[in-house]
Design a protein around this nucleic acid. Structure first.
Lengths: 146, 146
DNA sequence: TGTTATTGGTTCAACGTTGAACGAAAGGCC
DNA sequence: GGCCTTTCGTTCAACGTTGAACCAATAACA
């Protein structure tokens, strides 16, 4: 009984459930064939633009290289991403967003809108902002002490 | 750019990473062959005791029945849990903790201690408690609006 | 220079999960 | 009684992930 009543355990439990539900909701809302991981990569390119190597993407998303290989292969198969060899460094590849990838991201955003609006009706920006510093600190600690 | 700067998206992103890191840390700390899911079920029985049907466990852990079948089969194979048919209701089974399961949970707790202590050195109970109401509300909303 | 270490990317088996299908048992309702 | 509907648990393919092995290319250093 001492276990789950502890606030740290409770918080991590809640966080785990939220993550699961949020990811499931994301995948369910997204157009068919687009996973949350794929949408994340598309979002990354929409925000940052340009090119990125698979290894950089993997570390940006806290994911193994193998997982990123998988995600990129699926994105490439759908034509959402272009992958070319880096002639300056034979080990690397350069990944970039295609026009079709941008369209797919836009479609994903549209599909997500109703749910995001519902979320923003239920909670205020201020509530999320209030929670953010602690979440960020916790994430950083988890990252440094893994 | 408007996307990830939004506090709701940021919060969910942080929550997702925390959940991933926390689960990974949990699995790494636990004795070999014990998954986070299995440890969760053991913990449930240590706290509540008695018997529980697989369906109840599945809904308590927000997991599909198939996933719970899998977890229980592995627990049973290790002798951590006893599963018997419910003679009152031919559809149900009754799951209960074995003495060996209790020992395994104890061992899991021990293995987890260093990490939990580190976490409690880095953050105070008050910080977790302060974050809890919002997390709980968010979890409930996600659950109701899935 | 040559040798060793590191980095980048792929592949593979294993895991835990979902979602769907299924059969068996129980409940609800004329 | 009989017929739907719901509940329970299992099975199966598919997915995304990890961790490890591996090879190729580069970097570091003697």
């Amino acid at each position: 009984m001492a276990l789950k009543d502890r606030p740290d355990v409770s918080a991590l439990t809640e966080i785990g459930i939220i993550a699961q539900l949020s990811n499931a909701a994301l995948e369910r809302s997204l157009p068919d064939g687009m996973s949350a991981a794929q949408f994340g990569v598309l979002t990354h390119f929409m925000r940052r633009g340009g090119e990125e190597s698979p290894a950089k993407l993997a570390s940006a998303f806290q994911v193994t290289k193998g997982a990123m290989t998988n995600t990129l292969q699926r994105l490439q198969a759908q034509g959402f991403v272009a992958v070319v060899a880096d002639e300056a460094d034979g080990r690397k590849k350069r990944v970039s967003l295609t026009a079709e990838g941008a369209r797919a991201h836009e479609a994903g955003l549209m599909a997500l809108r109703p749910r995001m609006e519902g979320l923003r009706e239920a909670f205020t920006d201020r509530e999320f902002e209030a929670a953010l510093p602690f979440l960020k600190a916790l994430r950083i600690w988890m990252d440094e002490n893994r």
